[in-house]
Design a protein around this nucleic acid. Sequence first.
RNA 1: CGGAGCGUGGCGCAGUCUGGUAGCGCACUACACUGGGGGUGUAGGGGUCGUAGGUUCAAAUCCUAUCGCUCCGACCA
Length: 440
Amino acid sequence: MRLSVYFLPTLKETPSEASIVSHRLMLRSGMIRQSSAGIYSWLPLGLRVLKKIERIVREEQDRAGAQEVLMPTIQPADLWRESGRYDAYGPEMLRIKDRHDRDMLYGPTNEELITEILRGSVKSYKDLPKNLYHIQWKFRDEVRPRFGIMRGREFLMKDAYSFDLDYEGAKRSYNKMFVAYLRTFERMGLKAIPMKADSGPIGGDLSHEFVILADTGESEVACHKDFLDNDWLKDVDIDGGLQPTVDAFTEKYAATDGERDAAKEKELGGDLVTARGIEVGHIFYFGTKYSEAMNCRVMGPDGGEAALEMGSYGIGVSRLVGAVIEAFHDDDGIIWPESVAPFKVGLINLKVGDAECDKSCENIYAMLQDHGVEVLYDDREERAGAKFADMDLIGLPWQLVVGPRGLKQGVVEVKFSDHKANTRAKEELPLEAALKRIMV
RNA sequence: CGGAGCGUGGCGCAGUCUGGUAGCGCACUACACUGGGGGUGUAGGGGUCGUAGGUUCAAAUCCUAUCGCUCCGACCA
């Protein structure tokens, strides 16, 4: 993509409405634009990141055996009356009426809808298990939206729903999602820690929030220090027995704000870590709560009818964009992990109009594209400083800087922004060597 | 929903107390100089001062209402 034609409205100054760093950087780097409180438009750069995150989530869901569907944003109120949640949900739910004066709502979640789909078409235990997910916009009319995209009213969420015949099956489904979540976040460069969460009226221990640690996180969390540098995800057989893996994660102490246990923390002593956290996912077993209420049953092997055992599994897809930025940035801008970066390489032509520079950049640009490398080529007639500042702001992993001075000496500058080390390192290399480094 | 604050050109702000017909920086346009970390100069363009009503000879400024947005708290992916 040529920057001269790309819609990338970067801001030198920070808009006054943004207080936290991810919100500031998303506005400044031209990723999003606010429409109204907690509701945003996604501009080209931001949308690219959103799509990358969405793709990772999708791939890991598919890998774990979940199947993608797409349910509507607008749902009929009657469905929610069946489960009793139409009245229970409160003003967070956006209620609307259609032209026939029918009660509708903009879905804040989809348990009712998915249960209705299943009850009409799943009749036998032989049809189980099933896990269906979709990635869809949700709306929750938060009293006080804040933190930009991290806590908007409209947000993109992956929600999966598992259906099993019995508790053992439900637990297997739960474990699959548990491991899939660890993988999903890891691929985004994030260290997500599964923390014991409120399991509601159902009880039990099958409810975990996945929290990433970031200094600017929204709440205080605590966990065993082993979580910070574990490697337990290796060699997991997702179709085989996941219980040992899940046990390895869940036997160590980790708790969100409301679930913390002072006695256990005291016991841990120096092994205890407290930090700020951002919740990016939540998995939850809730048994037959909806299947009973909505009459979603199958015939079991014993000839008796049973309500399905269900669980739901959410990932805040749009929130993750902000969470990644909270985790990876410096004073100059964002530092994207390559897996979610909007482009892999930023190519800077320091002197547009200079025959050598232009030729060299055009060659590099074409070559990278031929190799399937996503490259953003700054071919604008801007000052060098402006180009550097913009590139650092949008935070691509690799920058390739081509200028007349370097070309005379047969070198270009490679700048690697390392999200793990939180550094941006520059190095002058011959072009061939530079390309080699970038393309490995 | 309780508490606080803010709406003035695309962005950041001053002007409001003490009423006199709108200003600064950045960005934008043109030209020149410049050219490896947001450069300099000259000349320009752009604003019903959130909206509605009121007071007044005169309102960004005073009064009333209303809408929007932000921050702190309680609540949530």
